[in-house]
Design a protein around this nucleic acid. Structure first.
Lengths: 296, 296
DNA sequence: AATCCAAGAGCG
DNA sequence: AATCCGCTCTTG
């Protein structure tokens, strides 16, 4: 309800299935809880823009999801130019920041009413064979300085070595940010668990958000060909490719993981496929003031 | 023999080309240079004590090599208890320091007349499945404090992850030594080049001695089943398993790589096999006083 | 004491 | 624009 006043999104065509509920007490409580304005909501999603089959319906559903969840920050991978154009034109409440202008690329979407863009930059992976990079946005969220990053790291098993190079770059870049910044990375890492072990595990000061939340089984596999048949693979494969890393600020308010859920689990009406071969990861964070932090 | 007085046995030519040129009688100078008492000589060798075939002849030849080259420091891997007993009883000029007392293990031999043992210790690899460890000796060489290390790191391809754990431990331990110590690691690392790349390459301050010497082809492969048929493998495989790492002291005299050559290239008279399936690496180092060091 | 390499094909 | 997993086995 109060939704309208703040962040209603314009859409050209609407098959409005997911309307915000009206005034039932329980629903309103729920809505209030879900819409806690102090929480930061972030969605990361590889939308498989390289798969052009059923792209219209899939893109339409993607927009529905974005409007439904209206995350404060959206991190997308495998965006292609036509999709980028639509995002820019349709998602008026968002600032759309592309990671490149050719082939396929990443994008950061910032909900203008909640997140102010201060600066953006790109870190190159010097040895990528797939034109991948690390896209960064310095923003202000409720007055707190925040650094947001996304990347679509080198794909496929044989590129393990390059992928691990990129992982080191990501972690190093996160650790180099100013101490008063919380730093959130989200993206399609293409990581296998053994590759993280291979790097000696998570470095000091960086956590894997899914692990911090207790490794919930229901959002472990973000690329799940057991359930998701978009790729029609003849074997069962499920991996946790999409991950979120967090480096908390060393002073000031700290961002802490609060919840995580998969997005995109519904088959589309027409083609009966899914929005992407990846699930999206919708994550909420709470801001913890310094006073609540554990004393040393 | 004339050996008695000190250390007058000849060595193989060392691979370095940067000889300081003199203008005098050749043979005597050469001999003097080769036996330069200011140089540190070090041999590292996996002697394949797990292969019991022809062990008597192979051990006998090993002793010959040690006596011939009389290195200041010897780092051995795959020593077994009976071999250890012989080394201790026969090599009177050496202090023999074992890395364990069961199964097969490493050993550090220190030439008493040149190298004084100050202290020794062992660093455990917490997750080794093969009882491997890192054996260390703190010594004094010509009055300079020196830390010498050896290890036989986790073997075989499938143990890559554990091996990389161990590599990080080795490098970390080397870097943690006092700044006035030169630190030399030598051993059978079982490393593939891509595993080093996987760790982001050599860390700041540590060099690979073979690389520092310009990657001489004639001592690249220390496990060379093309030439060495001790294992009678039905395929050609050659790898640089045995490596030396150096962390120079940050103050005082610095140890610098001077030359490197393979050892054990001759077939034994009787069995016509080699001393080990690995070649040994005989390496010389020079001490560079602070005054000769590159200014910052 | 045995093993041991690396790249590629075929399978579920 | 086409890929995509991980395991075992075979081959040189």
């Amino acid at each position: 309800m109060g939704d309208k006043q703040q962040d209603s999104v314009e859409r050209p065509a609407d098959g409005n299935k997911n309307q915000t509920s009206d005034s039932l007490p329980t629903d309103e409580d729920k809505h209030k809880k879900k819409g806690d304005p102090n929480k930061l909501t972030l969605l990361t999603w590889n939308i498989d823009g390289l798969d052009l089959d059923d792209i219209k319906e899939r893109l339409s559903r993607l927009l529905d999801y974005l409007i439904e969840y209206h995350p404060d920050i959206v991190l997308l991978q495998e965006v292609i130019s036509p999709i980028y154009q639509v995002l820019q034109q349709v998602l008026k409440p968002y600032h759309v920041l592309p990671g490149s202008d050719r082939s396929y690329f990443t994008a950061i979407l910032l909900r203008k009413s909640r997140v102010q863009l201060l600066e953006s930059s790109i870190v190159n992976y010097p040895t990528t064979k797939m034109r991948r990079n690390l896209l960064m946005a310095y923003v202000s969220f409720l007055g707190h300085p925040l650094c947001v990053m996304t990347s679509h790291m080198e794909s496929m098993k044989p590129q393990s070595l390059e992928r691990q190079n990129q992982l080191r770059t990501v972690w190093k870049t996160m650790r180099e940010q100013p101490q008063d910044h919380n730093v959130i990375f989200g993206g399609d890492t293409n990581l296998r668990d053994w590759e993280v072990k291979n790097q000696g595990g998570l470095p000091e000061g960086i956590c894997d958000v899914w692990e911090s939340l207790g490794q919930p089984e229901d959002c472990r596999y973000t690329w799940d060909c057991v359930t998701n048949d978009n790729k029609d693979l003849p074997f069962p494969a499920r991996l946790r490719f999409d991950r979120l890393f967090l480096r908390q600020a060393g002073k000031g308010s700290k961002v802490s993981p609060d919840g995580m859920t998969l997005v995109g689990l519904e088959r589309l009406d027409d083609c009966q496929r899914f929005t992407s071969d990846h699930w999206g990861l919708l994550c909420t964070f709470v801001m913890k003031p310094l006073s609540q932090a554990t004393p040393e």
